[in-house]
């Protein structure tokens, strides 16, 4: 019976790992699309002259922005997103190895379970 319980416990853990994994994948996709958007904005900033007028949408109004400040702002955001992205990706890798281990464990347990079942017959 303990084998069965063990198997149950392991597969529950596996499911937890999987759900965290897919959540993280989603987060990393969101982050990379944000990164891309910010990089596009940065590129756009670099294309216009220093006398260009930049506005930022704050609530329902467009507020004029200093170009340098806006550029710095976007740069900071890109840095932050990049850091987040590396953190999330590291965790994803970690989870992937954990999942592999777990699935092996589960497989072994299943094999043992089958063995027991055939013996008890």
């Amino acid at each position: 019976m303990s084998l069965e319980k063990n198997l149950e416990k392991e597969s529950l853990e596996m499911r937890k790992l999987q759900s965290e994994y897919s959540k993280l994948i989603e987060t990393s996709q969101q982050l990379s699309s944000q990164l891309q958007e910010n990089e596009l904005v940065q590129k756009e900033f670099s294309l216009v002259g220093s006398d260009a007028k930049i506005y930022k949408m704050i609530g329902p109004v467009l507020v004029p922005q200093d170009k340098e400040e806006a550029g710095l702002n976007v740069e900071k955001r890109i840095e932050y997103i990049k850091a987040e992205l590396t953190r999330v990706e590291a965790r994803i890798k970690e989870l992937a190895t954990l999942q592999e281990k777990k699935s092996l464990e589960i497989y072994n347990l299943q094999m043992k379970f089958k063995e027991q079942a055939t013996i008890s017959k």
Binding site: Q34, E37, N38, L40, V41, E44, F45, V48, A52, K53, I54, Y55, K56, M57, I58, L62, Q65, A70, V74, R77
Partner: peptide, 21 residues
């Protein structure tokens, strides 16, 4: 023209610039 370049930022552009964008 005022063009939305993303992430809440808008740039003032003339027609040819906007078209290029």
């Amino acid at each position: 023209l005022i063009v939305d370049v993303g992430t809440g930022y808008y740039l003032e552009k003339n027609c040819s610039q906007a078209q290029k964008f």
